[in-house]
Structure formats: C-alpha cells, structure tokens
Design a protein around this nucleic acid. Structure first.
Length: 285
DNA sequence: TTGTGTTTTATTGCCTCC
DNA sequence: GGAGGCAATAAAACACAA
C-alpha cells in the first residue's frame, strides 16, 4: 500500500467531519473557507491519526503532497466493485471503505469520478457507432444516385427509340393507339430525382429536419450512455438523428437499420407503386 | 530538467428525491 | 431539509517529449 500523505479539507465534506482513519497519512485543515495555499501553510501533514490534534506538529511539518493517489490494489478493488454495480448503496460504501482503508467519502468520490469517466468513454463509443453508420449510409446513397442516373438515361434512350419507331410506322397501322413517350424530365423528375429527405418528416410521422441531399441515419447503440427514457432508447441529442420513438415508426426494426427514402415516397407512394418506380430501401448496417 | 498535456482526486454548487 | 447524484472545475500527480 502506498504511503502517500493526504491533504484533507474537512470543511468540504458537507458537514461530515472526516478524519482519516486508514493507514494513509493525513493532514487536517479543519477550517472552512481557507485557500489551499493558506491552509497548507498553517496546517501541514499529520503522520498518523493520533497526531491529529498535536499542535506541535504544525510547526514541525511542511506541506508536501496535497493529493493522494490510490494504490493499484485499491483501484483494482474499486474497479471490480464498479463493474458489479456502478452505484453505491450506503452499506456497500461503508464496507468498501473499511476494506480499502479509505473514508466512505473517498469511495463515493471515486465512484462519482469513475461514472463520469465511463460516461465520457461511452459518448465516444456512441459517436463512433453513429459515424460509421452514417458513412455506410452515405456510400449507399451515392450508389443509389448513380443507379438512378443510369436508369434515367436508359429511359431517355428508350423514348428516343420509341419516337423513331413511331415515325417509321404509318399512322393507320397503330390501331388507333397513340404512343406517348415516357415522361422523363418534368413529369418524372420528382420520382427520379431521389433527394434523400427525412422519410419520417413528411406525411404521417415525425418532423425531423434533414440536410437536403444528405442521408439520414438512425442508430442505436446497445450500451449507449443515453438513457432510454430521455432519448427514446436512441443515441440521444445528436443533430439530425432521430429515434424510432420520436418519429413514431415503431416497426420493430433495429435502429441500425438505415432508412433512405425518396422525397416522393409519401406523396407519390400510390403513383409510384402503380408505376413501379418508387423505391424504399433499408440498409442493415 | 523543464514545459506541457493528461489523468486522477477532490471540491463546489445546483438539482432531485424522499 | 438532508442525502446523494451530476456537471464543472481546481489542482496535484503523472507521463513524456524536447
């Protein structure tokens, strides 16, 4: 066990006058609203709890360290306990403190800080998951756009062929049927120009705002930091990311499903279906 | 050795819950 | 109102490059 010294400010412990009883050395300020510098000049370290009120000691010792690093054994045990349960009930706190030779307050502080570190890490992990899903979606979006362009040019060339044929065949042999070219630009533009828009914002569901031309991603991380009750079990307050619960589309799909829809999906769904044009793609990431 | 960035321990203030 | 949680912050301790 490390034999470091502890500088301890009893005024800062919410009224708990914490005297250090473990096997670490202790310094006691025992006074409120005193700066660290001021205090350390006046209240140097005690080498044992017995010396706590030994006024002579003040004159002999000089302040050295003001913070105590826990030993690796202490940290190990704390980590083990944190893994089991990241919150401390009072009883466990007391037991653990006894075991470690620390003040319950120190154990509580350690858990508090540990939770904060865990949360930071979790946010980083969530960000990574979200980003990779977004990247995947973006590349899918690009390939869809290319495919779309290809199909558009196919339609154009087929129309040209149709018109050529119409000119070649005498009018009376057309059985009174007029051949219209497939609409491409004006009429079909809304269908072809697959601008990815928030599928959920139009029509019956949701109201998310998405960058024009940017795909939208909905992601859930299993161990996400974000509490389900606050963020609908989703990643949380990430811009332009919408949870399933928020959008009301509780369809049982994993949030890792990435949704891409053409802007016309809602308003032209029926028309699209009739034409066989509308596309609705799920990408399972 | 020293300057600098990171990690760890601890404090403070505010908030919520009982 | 007290206890406990969290965010923000301070400051010591540590790591490491120059």
């Amino acid at each position: 066990m490390e034999s470091g010294r502890i500088f301890f400010d009893a005024s800062a412990s919410r009224g708990n006058n914490m005297l250090f009883l473990g096997n670490t050395e202790l310094a006691f300020r025992g006074r409120s609203m005193m700066s660290m510098e001021e205090a350390s000049k006046r209240r140097p370290f005690f080498t044992s709890p017995d010396e706590l009120y030994d006024e002579e000691y003040y004159d002999k010792q000089s302040p050295e360290k003001k913070k105590h690093r826990l030993s690796s054994e202490q940290v190990h045990l704390l980590e083990k306990n944190f893994e089991e349960e990241n919150k401390l009930e009072p009883e466990r706190k007391t037991q653990l403190a006894k075991k470690l030779g620390l003040q319950p307050r120190q154990v509580a502080v350690w858990f508090q800080n540990r939770r904060a570190r865990w949360k930071t890490k979790q946010l980083e992990r969530d960000y990574d998951v979200l980003k990779s899903s977004y990247d995947t979606l973006l590349s899918s979006y690009d390939s869809i756009m290319k495919e779309n362009e290809k199909l558009k040019s196919e339609v154009v060339s087929l129309n040209e062929k149709l018109q050529v044929q119409a000119k070649e065949v005498p009018e009376e042999t057309l059985c009174d049927k007029k051949v219209d070219p497939l609409p491409v630009d004006e009429d079909m533009a809304p269908i072809f120009s697959t601008r990815v828009e928030d599928h959920l914002s139009s029509g019956s569901v949701g109201s998310a705002v998405v960058d024009e031309g940017s795909p939208q991603v909905v992601v859930d991380s299993v161990d996400s930091y974000f509490p389900a009750d606050n963020y609908g079990g989703c990643m949380g307050p990430v811009e332009r990311v919408q949870s399933e619960q928020e959008d009301g589309s509780d369809d049982g799909r994993s949030y890792l499903d990435v949704f891409v829809a053409s802007e016309t999906e809602n308003q032209n769904h029926e028309e699209g279906e009739a034409l066989g044009w509308w596309t609705n793609m799920y990408y399972v990431g």
